[in-house]
């Protein structure tokens, strides 16, 4: 068991003939992900790695292959349209890796998403992995081990850091979800927290956040009231100057809102063990698990 993706996931890759789309489609296949189709408009009829059929539209890919998840590598000007196309075709899980989508485009995508049954992970995210079963995204597969700790994060490399710490301490992962660093995304910390809480194979989890917005506070409040599992957290950006966008479009403290201090206090108030430094994420969870 795991959340969102497993052995039954049949993956489509939108932008499969592009440089990074192709590179990461291949690395997902090498990991064991069942990549069943690709889409690049105008390249329909080709095959990728001499076995994956390429289609012009998601509609065709869905009809021909029964794909139930998609990984999007389309560049920013067309990425929002690609998400909408996947939603329209009824793809259950849409994972958008693309960084740099205009926020107004995402605002419209979000409105369309709310009327659909699709779930969007990202954009501007590393993707999602259930170790040993399915990898959709750009994370280095080899640092992961199957296990019972969930990880949810806005940052790619900080997720790798947490996974690395867990794996080196003998703790595998149930599912790791990178929800992305943009101000408007498809899946929030809280959405993933609820899934981890309901997943029988996830015994504990780490929630990694950063400055900007209030998604971590909302998740923390829910955890404080409803979550029965041990949770550790980390918030990046305590030293970030206010008003500056720290790499991620969503990582900005504005008008005194979204500070690291405020988030850390909200996490602590919810009984979450907060890691003092990024080196302490796995150990913080182990401390929390010991406390029971």
């Amino acid at each position: 068991m795991s959340i969102l993706v497993d052995k039954n996931t049949r993956l489509l890759v939108q932008g499969i003939t592009g440089k990074s789309g192709g590179f990461h489609a291949k690395s997902c296949m090498d990991y064991g992900t069942n990549v069943v189709a690709g889409v690049t408009p105008g390249r329909g009829g080709e095959t990728f790695e001499s076995k994956v059929p390429v289609y012009d539209t998601v509609m065709e890919a869905r009809a021909q292959t029964g794909c139930n998840a998609t990984m999007i590598f389309v560049p920013p000007p067309g990425a929002a349209d690609s998400i909408l196309e996947a939603i329209d075709a009824g793809i259950e899980l849409v994972v958008c890796i693309t960084e740099g989508i205009p926020v107004i485009d995402m605002m419209r995508v979000k409105a369309a998403l709310q009327k659909s049954s699709s779930r969007l992970i990202g954009p501007n995210c590393p993707g999602i992995i259930t170790p040993g079963a399915c990898k959709i995204g750009i994370m280095p597969g080899y640092i992961h081990n199957p296990g019972k700790v969930g990880v949810v994060s806005r940052s790619g490399t900080l997720t790798y850091e947490a996974v690395w710490q867990l794996s080196s301490r003998g703790h595998g992962q149930s599912t790791c979800v990178g929800i992305g660093g943009d101000p408007i995304n498809g899946t929030s910390h809280l959405d993933v927290v609820k899934m981890f809480n309901d997943d029988p194979n996830t015994e504990a989890f780490i929630m990694i956040g950063e400055i900007g917005g209030s998604a971590e506070e909302e998740a923390a409040e829910w955890i404080g009231k409803n979550c029965k599992k041990p949770v550790a957290g980390f918030i990046a950006g305590a030293t970030a100057p206010p008003g500056r966008r720290m790499g991620h479009a969503g990582a900005i403290v504005s008008g005194g809102q979204g500070t690291a201090q405020g988030k850390i206090e909200a996490l602590q108030a919810a009984g979450i063990e907060v890691a003092a430094t990024p080196a302490d994420m796995a150990d913080a969870l182990l401390r929390r698990m010991k406390r029971g």
Binding site: S153, S155, L158, T159, E161, T239, A260, P278
Partner: peptide, 22 residues
């Protein structure tokens, strides 16, 4: 990575140093 870059600044500060940049 932006998250790791921020966290690196944070841990420098935590160890008593001052970051010169992100």
């Amino acid at each position: 990575g932006a998250g790791l870059a921020m966290a690196t600044m944070d841990i420098i500060k935590h160890c008593g140093g001052e970051p010169a940049n992100f």
